[in-house]
Write a protein that binds this DNA or RNA. Structure first.
Length: 225
DNA sequence: GATTGATCATAT
DNA sequence: ATATGATCAATC
């Protein structure tokens, strides 16, 4: 019996809502929405993200688009410690492994997702129960020219390797700010990709993730830490 | 502390 | 299987 929240009609309203959540614990927010709070995230890894989506009126469901299509805004929660350092890399999107010839940065999912992000820091540490973690001040972010250049460079380099049949040799170190890693239900999930001789092969689905130093710097710049 | 492969829930 | 939301946890 949780209350439905309408999508915000403007970015300013969205930001207002997000700012009003700052300082609340996740338990308080969950209680106000009549949602049960898990004791840990082992079986509820997406709980925080889904809780904030609900609280801010993001369109629920699994659409391959931004959380607030009308506003062109993507919502991302990011776990940070008390020094404002991110605890985890940030998942951006699944990487296309086939049918990618001619795919440009300008048209990529990564660029689309990251063109405007509402970051909601969640303060705590790995040991703290989800309910005890505190919602931090939100940050509406658009990549600076330099940040976009770094993202683009990494994306183009990684996508080129994928198109050349080198997906299996790409490590999480191949980019400066973006990395490619498995993104799957388990190690048995397979998807089609390009092999070394250009032939189709089956491999683990991959996703693009933002590295911790990049998101740490992004937050530090905004909060002037 | 960063890397890395693996994993969990849910909806379509 | 793919998409959404991510974190776990051993190892480097």
């Amino acid at each position: 019996m949780n209350s439905h929240i309408d999508p915000p009609s403007s970015v300013a309203l969205l930001l207002d809502r997000a700012e009003q959540l700052a300082g609340w614990s996740l338990r308080e927010l969950a209680d106000s929405l009549s949602i049960a709070t898990p004791n840990d995230l082992r079986r509820d890894k997406g709980w925080i993200g889904q809780l904030l989506e609900l609280a801010l009126g993001a369109s629920a469901g699994s659409k391959p688009e931004q959380d607030f299509p009308e506003l062109g805004v993507e919502l991302k929660t990011i776990p940070i410690n008390h020094q404002a350092k991110p605890l985890e890399t940030t998942f951006v999107s699944v990487a296309p492994l086939i049918g990618i010839s001619g795919l440009r940065w300008q048209d990529s999912n990564v660029r689309n997702k990251l063109s405007c992000v509402l970051w909601i820091p969640i303060i705590g540490d790995r040991a703290s129960p989800p309910g005890d973690r505190i919602i931090g001040q939100p940050l509406l972010w658009r990549p600076s020219a330099e940040q976009e250049q770094l993202l683009r460079q990494d994306w183009e380099e990684i996508m080129e390797l994928i198109s050349l049949g080198q997906v299996q040799s790409i490590s999480a170190r191949h980019g400066q700010v973006l990395q490619l890693r498995p993104k799957a239900a388990n190690s048995k999930a397979l998807t089609e990709a390009i092999g070394e001789q250009g032939q189709p092969i089956m491999t683990l689905p991959r996703g693009f993730y933002l590295k911790i130093p990049f998101t740490a710097a992004l937050l530090a710049k905004h909060f002037m830490l």
